[in-house]
Every structure is written in C-alpha cells, then in structure tokens.
C-alpha cells in the first residue's frame, strides 16, 4: 500500500474514533436529571464488561482448561475484592500453569 493511502486510512480511522469519544463528552455539560437516563447510564459500564467478558474469556488463552482455571481464580480473588492488578496477574499465572501442564502431557 502506498504511504498516502495509509495516511488517508489512518486519518479516517483515528478521526471517526476520536469524534465518537469526544463529542458526547464535550456536549453534555450539565447533569442529567431524568431517572431512566441516569439509571441507564449507571448500568452501561457493568453491561459492557459483562458482554465483553463472556464468553470471550473462554477463548482468551488458546486452551479451554487454562481459560477456565484463570476464570475461576479471577472470580475468587475478585469476590474477595483484591485489586485489578492482583486479579489479572493471578488469572494469568493460573492459565500459564494449566497451559504448561497441557504442554507437558502432550
């Protein structure tokens, strides 16, 4: 691909993505009072993360058993309200252990 074409694509991608993010953020200055809208916006982050995590987490490590182990460890630690970093690291460690075991027995 020619350099010019690359930069046109880059401009379109970055421009559209930036405007989607910034316009609502800049336009809404006041506080919304409508209960439905407020409640809707309150639930958005939880809904987004629920939809993004499941079922994608099962496919995240290249091995269902490793993903399941990571998921279980993450759930236990998150339930005990450990920090984001702690939960993420131990989920990776659990997945890595299962992945290594899977490699060893193959």
């Amino acid at each position: 691909m020619k350099s010019l074409d690359f930069f046109v694509y880059l401009f379109i991608m970055a421009g559209v993505t930036y405007l989607i993010r910034v316009l609502p953020f800049v336009i809404f200055k006041g506080k919304i009072t409508n209960t439905f809208v407020k409640s809707f916006l309150f639930y958005v982050p939880y809904a987004v993360l629920g939809a993004m995590t499941f079922p994608a987490i099962l496919f995240s490590t290249g091995n269902y058993a490793a993903s399941a182990a990571g998921l279980a460890v993450a759930c236990v630690l998150a339930f005990r309200e450990k920090s984001l970093l702690t939960v993420a690291i131990f989920a990776c460690a659990a997945a890595l252990i299962v992945n290594l075991i899977a490699m060893a027995i193959q």
Partner: peptide, 25 residues
Amino acid sequence: PEVIRNSLGIAIYGMFLAIIIPPSK
C-alpha cells in the same frame, strides 16, 4: 514463547471481573 503470550490473553478479562464482581455482591 507462545505459551506465555497465550496465557497473558486472560489478563484483561481478569481486570474486567475485578471491576464487576465487587459491586455485583
């Protein structure tokens, strides 16, 4: 190594769970 790259893939979802589970309780 591929096994480490694969295992790191779950990091982001672990973070998501750490965000949604405490308020869900």
